[in-house]
Design a protein around this nucleic acid. Structure first.
Lengths: 335, 335
DNA sequence: CATGGAAGCTAATTCGTTTTAGCGATAGAT
DNA sequence: ATCTATCGCTAAAACGAATTAGCTTCCATG
């Protein structure tokens, strides 16, 4: 409520002087120690807080970073968001976050909105349709780091998990345990990381000559319907193909898959072994518990913030700006 | 990038005129239709976006509401946040959110931060230590709605689930199924809603003369340690008291409880029936699936935003400002 | 042929800060 | 006695929009 001007009036000096004193520029600006401490005292007493809006307008810095995730209600993204917030706070930055719902239009809208809010930098898990707008930001040298996905042939800092290697590790585990007829169930999304996971699956199988047919891959199109339809599709697939083991490409398709398996009354891992990309608290609780290829979320978050702080000039620029975080296999009972 | 001033220069008129045209005040301010459409066209072409910082400084309105939750990485709160964001967007409001981690100091800090950001209103799941600061906001007539908890004898709009009634419904279900030795496991938190749930438990049992001893209630203090310690405490309790059925007071203590039950190799519901307050995607997947007392999160979110919009003067003021949303029993296999 | 009013636009102020440029007074150098 | 430096502080501009209070020009009216 109290403004700089008012503080100045109370102390009986000019706003300029108060500003210098509060910003620790007293020595530099030759404000006497006595006056400085008087100002500080009054500021303390009146509980003065600078108006960030005014500061932002004047300095051109909001000290805010915009975080765009796919869906904040999803465990992966909310944990990501939380860690990013904590990490950014260490550098005195605030975070505003929003969800694209994987909708191109919504994503572009959010980008516009954040620009209007004059955020200083961006952390984004982009949808494919955001390519253009992101390209423009990059041309304008706006600090920006992509998370969890990236665009080919667009030079832009990004940090994501090593999807290819992660799936390969998972498949190799299944092969080692003796499973031969292995399937891959993935959402049908046009995203880099999905392609990488699929490539990892095929590569790992081909190395052991176990990739026989395209039917070993099921792509579930969520545009056709929601959860229920997905579960039905998976049930149908499992019945007709009856694989010995299955790798789910994401956390949520894994959950739908488990539901399908439960409804088919298949025994894990005897009837069907299961591995899922991306861990989930649920997996630990299931009976049997589900083996997962886990993404070190905190790692991803911290790395992304670190790079962004470099771009923002808060810390010195990171050398590595295209980071792949290795996955970790969480061995449980399902495979 | 392009400012109002620049637009004005391009069109060859004054910034004032441009401002009127863009804000739809042309008729009122007698800007000719021809000029108005020329301005609009140039604005379109140059992709002009007003600088929200400047607008906020001038108008005193940021069109931002501050949302303070306990932990954004938690399913309940992240779903809440998501719905609130969607709902607020309908009214052209943005949302910035942050987590208290149930830490009084952090909560107060967040309140300060949001004040400095000049948010127009607040949605808060408060920690007990935030009482004072929230009281001050209320005295200053700042639009504010509490969610999920409230302070006794402080008149402040709030919306929460009907905790008492929810637990009563749950306990009654257990009693109807014939369980007699029923326990209540709750985090040891000094929060209204925990007290209400405990009261509900005791009241429901006493009505059937089934409340025999304080030992039927276990309070787990999370200050003593994390998840692991909690699980150990629950295991110890279940071994020594061996209840027939247990009601978990929250989502996350339920998950820890299930872990404990799994480690003890107890069969649900034969050895031990389970009901949990607050639903979770996990519960549907567990074998057996877990019966829950579900909080209609979207309802809570929508109601809270509605009341806040009333306080902000965006819509007309709500009549009911102290709302209890009824719970819903999700019948599954664990009880 | 004043006079009034409307039509169509704009100059200048404001919001709360930060920052640049500079002012008066005293002290030291020449 | 004059010039320069330093000290301690401040006036004023700026950030980008919104808004208040006009300022012209033109036409109609008596």
């Amino acid at each position: 409520m109290a403004s700089l001007k008012e503080l100045a009036r109370i102390v009986g000096v000019s706003p300029t002087t108060v500003s210098f004193a509060l910003n620790g520029r007293s020595k530099e600006m030759r404000i006497s120690e006595e006056l400085t401490s008087r100002i500080l005292k009054v500021a303390e007493e009146t509980g003065y807080r600078p108006n960030n809006i005014a500061v932002a307008l004047r300095t051109g810095q909001t000290k805010i970073i915009g975080l765009i995730v796919e869906d904040i209600a999803n465990h992966f993204f909310s944990t990501l968001a939380k860690t990013i917030e904590e990490e950014a706070n260490l550098f005195d930055y605030k975070v505003v976050y929003c969800s694209t719902e994987n909708d191109d239009e919504k994503g572009e809208g959010l980008l516009d909105m954040l620009q209007q809010q004059q955020v200083d930098g961006y952390l984004i898990t982009p949808t494919s349709g955001m390519r253009n707008k992101i390209g423009k930001l990059i041309n304008r040298k706006i600090p920006l780091v992509l998370i969890d996905r990236y665009f080919e042939d667009m030079e832009c800092p990004h940090v994501m998990v090593n999807n290819f290697e992660g799936i390969v590790k998972g498949v190799n585990l299944l092969i080692k345990k003796g499973y031969k007829k292995i399937s891959f169930i993935t959402p049908d999304l046009d995203l880099m990381q999905m392609k990488e996971r699929e490539k990892g699956f095929i590569a790992a199988l081909e190395k052991q000559h176990l990739y026989k047919s395209k039917k070993q891959i099921l792509k579930v199109d969520y545009k056709d319907g929601g959860k229920k339809e997905a579960i039905e599709k998976i049930k149908t697939y499992l019945k007709t193909e009856s694989p010995e083991a299955v790798v789910f490409a994401t956390n949520y398709i894994g959950i739908h898959g488990l539901q399908a398996i439960k409804e088919l009354k298949l025994k894990i891992p005897d009837d069907l072994a299961v591995i899922c990309f991306d861990d989930n608290e649920v997996f630990d609780l299931c009976t049997p518990s589900i083996t997962a290829i886990s993404q070190p979320i905190e790692d991803i978050a911290r790395t992304a913030v670190k790079i962004l702080m470099g771009e923002l000039g808060v810390t010195r620029k990171s050398a590595k700006k295209l980071v792949r975080i290795p996955t970790e296999i969480i061995n449980r009972e399902s495979a």
